[in-house]
Nucleic acid binder design. Structure first.
Lengths: 212, 212
DNA sequence: GAGTGGTCTAGACCACCCC
DNA sequence: GGGTGGTCTAGACCACTCC
């Protein structure tokens, strides 16, 4: 804890604290999973108010560097999974690469008409039949994202009953339907961590789209 | 402003306020570009402290629903550009779709050896030559992301001098080098909005990778 | 019960924008 | 100068975890 907050600098205290904490992580002083000092400790160490400490930590949580558990502490995140979530990806593959166990809870699967947005993404006609697959995707039993996938029905026919058993939608499509996915559009929305009431667990926009 | 904050509810005030504000947006009472009431107005309207109002607004900025300008106010965001940034995309194309003018500032372009991460992403051998193109990408002269692209040198030969003039890297590769990009991996990091010192504008991890 | 993070208050000063 | 958001303080009470 050599570094200090410069109280004369125009740089906000919370920003300086972030830089200090990031250095500790980059330098390897703290490794993923480590508990970092509590808000109170940081408050005394750096002589700033708890709200300012909190602002710094909240920012770093948002950036995926830290995660916090009420009553336990603040911890250095495992190497950014978030980064791999952008771009062309397979959820289950990424989770396995991280050494975790992927698990899906199928919330619903149904045939329906494509709405305008989905049709546009999939380059199909509006009102064309699609299969909507809604899954809560977990890593080590921890919910990560609530995902809705739309697949044009003409590509795979009726709803395959054994699809539910498969972890990887892409693998399934390749092996069972002979479709190789070469391009995918995915839009994410995080699952609410803290759902005060089930009311807030409603399904919102989470629309990964597959164009084969 | 019919709705009120329920001070007896276990749901945090800031969360309730977010729900109220979101309803206003969804209901079309506020459209993109509109200025919403100031923090002070919201404070009086809903009888909560300014910090709590700020927390709600900060959250919504993070979610891409609002944007704030110091000295001016808080505004409803234009329809989410952020969503289009996930997945397979062309920056300049997306910006144009949004009716804005894309502009790139090339910060550096150089030949170098691929490090382990880049080599892995591109499926090439470590130490194979790549071209590293670092660009500050702007929409309507406003910096959006700082991007580093790596292209295997064997794909396009030496550094093309006229590449700098081109807005779209994908277009360039297709027209000039005969390469059609069918898959891309992209990792993003936002540019710091508020760089108190140039020190903080250092290049960090922003590693879009192209595998053709 | 002690320690932790989650929320909240009522003030304060500042930087920025616009008139 | 008045309004806005940006930062900061020094308290407070609560919910959760662990012993």
């Amino acid at each position: 804890m050599e570094k200090k907050i410069n109280h004369e600098s125009p740089v906000p205290f919370y920003y300086q604290l972030k830089e200090i904490l990031k250095e500790n992580i980059i330098a390897g002083e703290w490794v993923p999973g480590d508990k970092i000092p509590s808000e109170n400790e940081l408050r005394f160490t750096y002589q700033i108010s708890r709200n300012t400490v909190k602002k710094a930590l909240d920012d770093m949580v948002q950036e995926g560097l830290l995660n916090r558990v009420q009553g336990k502490g603040t911890f250095v995140s495992k190497p950014k999974l978030e980064q791999s979530l952008t771009g062309f990806y397979s959820f289950s593959k990424v989770i396995k690469q991280q050494g975790m166990v992927p698990k899906d809870i199928v919330i619903s699967i149904e045939e329906t008409d494509a709405n305008a947005t989905v049709a546009n993404q999939l380059h199909i006609e509006p009102d064309e039949q699609v299969i909507a697959l809604r899954r809560l995707r977990c890593a080590d039993d921890e919910p990560i994202i609530l995902e809705t996938s739309y697949i044009p029905k003409k590509l795979i026919g009726a709803i395959p009953q054994d699809m539910l058993k498969h972890y990887s939608l892409y693998d399934y499509m390749e092996k069972e339907a002979g479709i190789v996915v070469v391009s995918a559009k995915e839009i994410f929305e995080p699952v609410l961590i803290r759902d005060y009431e089930s009311h807030y667990l409603e399904v919102k926009r989470g629309v990964p789209c597959i164009a084969a």
